[in-house]
Design a protein around this nucleic acid. Structure first.
Length: 257
DNA sequence: ATGGCTGCGTCACGCAGA
């Protein structure tokens, strides 16, 4: 079973690229972030025609997450992270597919730091930490996947020294990610590729992709059940080089069965 | 250090992204 994540940066503006990627790489499940579209503007027909059933949580202009599957419709469990009923941003959707609980997330960027946006990022992280703990306690196969907006270590940044004051790399944020993983999760990409420079995002500015000035900020966290089934993981890097691409590249894992 | 690029919403820029 192949599960992928892709921050599309606008699901409608990105539709040709998204459809080409789905066709060429054929993930069983695809988690999308940054739909940047209200619910009624989700391109359901095109996704259906591509062979996928989908659930989504849209929002006008910003955020927005979706789970696509071609092995049975995702059975939705929730469409918000618990812990703050006043948080109206669509940044989380959760469903089961083929016996796996999939949490598709888009963690806040947090810039500028310090400030209210950074506070929001940290509080969102706290809520994720609490929910992740509950999920682990259920002792079932879980993947928490998406755009975490965190580079976990210096290896995950092309030029660490220029990011030390950024909300994606500040010690508090790296600690939050580390503490989350320490609950018992497996960072799939890093576990299969220790010591390797792997990026999932390249800025639109200054020819970042051509220079390989990237960041690793899209992650798969696997519960112990899935860690045992993890066979391969990678980044569809070439997609970032396509015409009209997102600033993120798709990331995927291959599970046994 | 800064600005650079892109999508969205509305229709000339402002906001947000990372």
């Amino acid at each position: 079973m192949k599960i992928a994540t892709y921050n599309v940066n606008g699901v409608n503006g990105r539709l040709p690229v998204l459809l080409r990627w789905l066709k060429e790489t054929a993930p069983d499940v695809a988690c999308l972030q940054e739909l940047k579209a209200p619910p009624e503007k989700f391109p359901e027909q095109a996704i259906t025609d591509a062979g996928y059933e989908a659930i989504w949580h849209g929002q006008k202009s910003w955020n927005g997450v979706a789970i696509l599957s071609k092995i049975g419709k995702p059975q939705e469990l929730r469409r918000a992270l618990p812990g703050d009923p006043d948080d109206v941003n669509s940044r989380y959707i959760e469903a089961t597919v083929n016996g796996i609980l999939i949490g598709c997330l888009y963690l806040p960027n947090g810039n500028p730091a310090p400030g209210p946006k950074f506070d929001y990022k940290l509080s969102w992280f706290k809520r994720l930490h609490a929910h992740a703990k509950d999920l682990l306690a259920q002792d079932i196969p879980v993947v928490l996947v998406g755009d975490y907006n965190v580079m976990p270590t210096e290896l995950d940044v092309y030029k660490p020294e220029s990011w030390v004051n950024d909300a994606l790399f500040l010690p508090e944020v790296r600690d939050a990610f580390k503490n989350l993983v320490a609950q018992g999760w497996t960072d799939a990409i890093r576990t299969l590729h220790p010591g390797e420079k792997i990026y999932t995002f390249w800025d639109y500015f200054r020819q970042a992709y051509t220079r390989n000035a990237g960041l690793r900020i899209d992650h798969f966290l696997l519960s112990p059940h899935l860690e045992k089934r993890l066979k391969a993981a990678g980044v569809d890097k070439e997609v970032r080089g396509w015409e009209k691409s997102s600033d993120h590249a798709p990331v995927w894992i291959q599970l046994d069965k």
